[in-house]
Amino acid sequence: MGTDTTRQPPDRATLGRYGETLAARYLRDRGLEVLERNWRCEHGEIDIVARDGACLVVCEVKTRRGTAYGDPVEAVTVAKALRLRRLAAAYVAARGVRPEQVRVDVVGVLCVRGRVPEVRHVVGVGS
């Protein structure tokens, strides 16, 4: 991903927002339309809601400074993928949209000090 900086954000919350910004840019660059970021309801939060053609895409973004605990995308468990499916249903109901398909994706952002951030997009987790 061609990012103009290798500086890391100072704290965890800022790192998460930075990763979400990179993920949204990455998805847009690949033709997805980002509809919303950080959509919340009583059941939780969706980091990014996007559209890929007729498909509604719910994206979980995981940002890490290193791989000591594995690749960032590995942080999304089966339970988390199922929760994202429930959140997708809540989003569809709340917004009154009728997508042909709904998909759950994970975008991992690896921000290693002194290196350009790496973005990894896993399409259709927990399907």
Score class of each variant (00 low, 15 high):
residue 2 G to F: 07
residue 3 T to H: 10
residue 3 T to L: 10
residue 5 T to L: 15
residue 11 D to L: 11
residue 12 R to T: 09
residue 12 R to G: 08
residue 13 A to T: 05
residue 14 T to W: 10
residue 16 G to Q: 02
residue 16 G to D: 05
residue 17 R to W: 10
residue 18 Y to P: 10
residue 18 Y to T: 09
residue 22 L to M: 11
residue 24 A to W: 04
residue 25 R to E: 07
residue 25 R to W: 08
residue 25 R to I: 03
residue 26 Y to Q: 04
residue 29 D to P: 03
residue 33 E to Y: 03
residue 35 L to F: 03
residue 35 L to E: 05
residue 38 N to T: 11
residue 42 E to G: 08
residue 44 G to Y: 01
residue 46 I to F: 01
residue 46 I to W: 02
residue 48 I to L: 11
residue 48 I to S: 00
residue 49 V to P: 01
residue 50 A to L: 05
residue 54 A to N: 11
residue 54 A to Q: 11
residue 55 C to W: 08
residue 57 V to Y: 10
residue 59 C to H: 02
residue 61 V to Y: 05
residue 63 T to A: 14
residue 63 T to P: 10
residue 65 R to H: 04
residue 66 G to W: 11
residue 66 G to I: 07
residue 67 T to D: 05
residue 67 T to S: 07
residue 69 Y to D: 07
residue 70 G to F: 12
residue 76 V to T: 09
residue 76 V to Q: 00
residue 79 A to T: 10
residue 82 L to N: 14
residue 83 R to M: 12
residue 84 L to Q: 04
residue 84 L to Y: 04
residue 87 L to M: 12
residue 87 L to G: 06
residue 89 A to C: 14
residue 90 A to D: 15
residue 90 A to W: 13
residue 94 A to F: 04
residue 96 G to H: 04
residue 102 V to R: 06
residue 102 V to Y: 05
residue 103 R to Q: 13
residue 104 V to W: 03
residue 108 G to R: 04
residue 109 V to E: 07
residue 109 V to D: 08
residue 112 V to L: 14
residue 114 G to Y: 11
residue 115 R to L: 15
residue 115 R to D: 11
residue 115 R to K: 13
residue 116 V to M: 12
residue 116 V to G: 06
residue 118 E to I: 04
residue 120 R to A: 06
residue 123 V to Q: 15
residue 127 S to A: 09
